[in-house]
Design a protein around this nucleic acid. Structure first.
Lengths: 339, 339
DNA sequence: TACGGATGTGTGAACGTGCACACAGTAGGA
DNA sequence: TCCTACTGTGTGCACGTTCACACATCCGTA
């Protein structure tokens, strides 16, 4: 009696009894099959009378399908702050799953406690698959998914641990190379980078692309590395670069938020953009159009990434085995005013 | 054969057989009860051997408890853009639920299609309760929750439809009054407001508080209303106000994002802040410290709001009936440089 | 000796579904 | 006339779990 039972709800039995039919017929009304018009009418009347709603838990148990897919956001705290794209990725995934009549459920993992509980949740039959955002290689969630062979898709970077899990992302190296080349071809010569999150693939790859594009022009002294993809880091990073090389005339910021911070630091220092210094960002987030001047940047197709990840799951649920190589989406350059 | 069955997983039966025990004993190992040391050891060995994970769907069916609580975000598209607090609210709720060993699952409702599917999901026994963010009065989700008498809590504004559902929020009227009074007491005389979202309670209440605080100083001409709580709206709203009243010396922006936009418009117009014009915002979001000058604003305790909503659910799950009046959290003024 | 309580274990039923199967009636063709 | 096909309906079982109950053993005490 300590735990009050939730109020009793109508079941197939109840509406079968009310309609004077058997459970089987009710089931056929719900799931298709031969049912006479009168029987259907009687049953539908009973259903709306008693306010019947099918019990998903029972259905999932029997069918071994829940029609739900998890969207697992690891370290969301930093994600929400650093990456304005996470919301768009979620909405993209939701839209795609929605079309296939699947429910997306987002789970956030902040603590070790969360990790364990989410692992239990994923293994428990409440979801048919999982989209995992920004996992680190070592993350225990990956092991669980791998052991369970739960249909999964990774967003952002490949799960080194299990090569059979597909992923979707962008070509960070190529995109960074392309936007850096834009700085070069517009005549910049002393080009620096504010590199962030060098403990993640995205951070490492953007730096690699930068170095790649500059070739002999590359100067180790002109790379300032900051911990996060955020505004504050941008301010700090830019001040740092200005101190090291006052003659700097081009900057590649590893994210739009960082670029926004860099603009602020440049304004402080009395440099004009793009006159004295050309600045480019990465993400094409809301930051890009908010800045003064608006940012030239790399467009991240966040919505498409989400929907692509969803497709990877749906395909696995249909029994297809997507090629494990992973999928890279195009990232067009967006030319605005900052470089 | 069109739909491949997910791979067969170990059940209590399997591990009972492997350990030479009965299902009952296995259940007792999992849920507590009298079990001898040897039996426990044998069963635990079998469990790790076979990689056993309990099936939540079956447990939920039998127990009528899923240990999961939904976090329903209505119109998340505008939320993610407008309200930087939604993430913090989520994390606050998750932390509180996590402590009670409940899984939070976020559901996103964008389309009519989503509404229906989420309603089904909520009624289906996959969750024990629901936290609903920013519902409008007419939202069909409210009806579903009400009909089901699913334990629920609303965030942000009271569900007019069903007064038995508790809510948690802030005193928008009082907070707006307080911050407006700050403008008055610091000597501003021609004070305007950029009011947003006048189709929501939050928008209406903030305007009411503003009017309240000004009393005879209030001038209808000095209110510019914009659709959303975002940066662009702030720029537009401020330009509008400057045109109507060039002598304006104080502005209450309905959100920090709007305030940031207003600062931009003021800079364009060559006004200094706080010298010529004092500007105050609302939310104490990341915008507040990013701006130049940093914003004087109203602190929204987003994390606490989330955790408070979670508590309201947990309390209902324990069988208590929280007073339906709702709960308003304190919103301290944060004095920075913009006014 | 007999009894009550504590400890340990097995068994059957139920949670609410969906599906395979069985059955009944009708119609059409060989 | 019989066999088959199609439509419509009812019944039993299984999904994997928990819980109530029955049973079994051991101990201390009346």
């Amino acid at each position: 009696m300590s735990r009050p039972q939730p109020q009793k709800r109508a079941t197939v039995h109840d509406i079968a009894a009310a309609a004077g039919m058997s459970r089987g017929t009710v089931s056929r009304v719900l799931n298709g099959g031969y049912v006479s018009a009168e029987a259907r009418a009687a049953i539908e009347a009973a259903m709306s009378d008693l306010g019947y709603v099918p019990n998903n838990a029972a259905r999932a148990l029997k069918m071994r399908r829940s029609q739900a897919v998890a969207f697992v956001a690891l370290e969301p705290h930093s994600l929400f702050l650093d990456d304005p794209n996470i919301g768009s990725i979620m909405l993209g995934a939701n839209a795609a799953l929605s079309l296939a009549d699947h429910q997306m459920v987002s789970l956030v993992v902040e603590s070790a406690r969360d990790t364990e509980r989410v692992a239990r949740y994923l293994s428990g039959g409440f979801v048919d698959g999982a989209i995992v955002v920004s996992a680190r290689t070592k993350d225990p969630i990956i092991r669980v998914i791998s052991d369970l062979s739960l249909p999964a898709a990774f967003v952002g970077h490949p799960p080194d641990l299990d090569q059979t899990i597909p992923f979707v992302g962008i070509d960070n190296v190529g995109s960074a190379r392309a936007i850096t080349e834009h700085l070069v071809t517009t005549g910049r010569r002393r080009i620096g980078m504010i590199a962030a999150a060098l403990d993640r693939d995205s951070g490492i790859d953007r730096l690699a692309g930068f170095r790649d594009a500059l070739g002999p022009l590359f100067d180790d002294e002109l790379v300032s590395d900051v911990p996060h993809y955020d505004y504050g880091s941008g301010v700090k990073g830019m001040r740092d670069l200005l101190e090291r090389e006052p003659a700097i005339d081009g900057v590649f910021a590893a994210s739009d938020a960082i670029a926004a911070g860099a603009l602020e630091a440049l304004r402080e220092a009395g440099r004009s953009v793009p006159g004295d210094v050309g600045v480019v960002g990465f993400d094409d987030s809301t930051w890009a159009v908010r800045c003064q001047p608006q940012l030239t940047t790399v467009h991240q197709p966040a919505k498409e990434i989400g929907s692509c990840a969803a497709q990877l799951i749906l395909r696995q649920l249909r029994g297809e085995h997507p090629d494990p190589g992973g999928q890279l989406l195009p990232t067009p350059l967006v030319l605005r005013d900052s470089a």
